[in-house]
Design a protein around this nucleic acid. Structure first.
Length: 225
DNA sequence: GCGACAG
DNA sequence: ATCTTGTCGC
């Protein structure tokens, strides 16, 4: 998995993102999607608590849950979230027994100023379909017509002139939108389809991510320090 | 041709 | 992300 050395400074991180953005694929490289893994991280007292939820889409249930605690090596810097979170994602995946067809991570994929958010960098390592789902935009702007899909309003997201992802707004709900973009091995439109299929009327986040979020929070709160 | 924004 | 109470809604 680590045939490439992980960057150790911001300058290395910048170069790394450049490489990664050129190496990843925006084509749909998958068959049937049965198992989807959601990855999320909570923080407490500078420590990170990560959770992975492997979700069985057909039977709509969780088949595996793993958690890890780590001390991130970097402070948060906007644009470089991957420096903190990707090592934790990789450690989580290393613990999983079940194979996953696709991963969902909290954060941006290519909807990022360097076209390489944490979902993209993670996808570069894991070499499987990864989708980034973020709760706030990052240096993107939106234009073009809105597309109506059931209870959602979809808008295109651009970095410069390049289409990088979709915003999902919720009709008749006071919820902030979510921002969906490919990490690796999946197209923009398929990323949107996959996420929409994992939404329900009660929650703003796709199921596996919601469950990972709850699991990470629960873990963080039940560890004694 | 609008650009602050991830966790 | 985290620090925080009550409170509105399904």
């Amino acid at each position: 998995m680590f045939n490439v050395r992980f960057p150790t400074s911001l300058n290395e991180a910048r170069k790394f993102q450049q490489i990664v953005s050129q190496q990843i694929s925006l084509k749909d490289e998958f068959g049937d999607i049965n198992y989807i893994t959601g990855l999320d991280i909570s923080y407490k007292n500078k420590r990170a608590y990560g959770a992975a939820i492997v979700y069985d889409c057909k039977n709509k249930k969780v088949i595996e849950k793993k958690r890890v605690e780590m001390l991130p090596k970097f402070e948060y810097v906007s644009g470089f979230l991957f420096m903190r979170e990707v090592p934790i994602f990789l450690k989580l995946v290393d613990q999983l027994v079940n194979q996953s067809d696709l991963f969902l991570v909290d954060g941006h994929g290519i909807a990022h100023p360097a076209y390489a958010g944490s979902a993209t960098v993670f996808g570069y390592f894991i070499k499987k379909p990864v989708i980034g789902v973020a709760k706030a935009p990052m240096n993107v702007f939106e234009f073009g017509s809105e597309e109506k899909r059931e209870d959602f309003l979809i808008t295109n997201l651009y970095v410069g002139k390049r289409l990088v992802g979709k915003k999902i707004a919720y009709k008749d709900k006071n919820w902030k939108p979510i921002y969906v973009s490919p990490g690796n091995n999946i197209s923009i439109s398929s990323s949107l389809d996959v996420v929409i299929n994992l939404l329900d009327s009660k929650h703003k986040l796709p199921k596996p991510l919601l469950l990972a979020h709850l699991a990470a929070n629960e873990y963080k709160e039940n560890i004694y320090h």
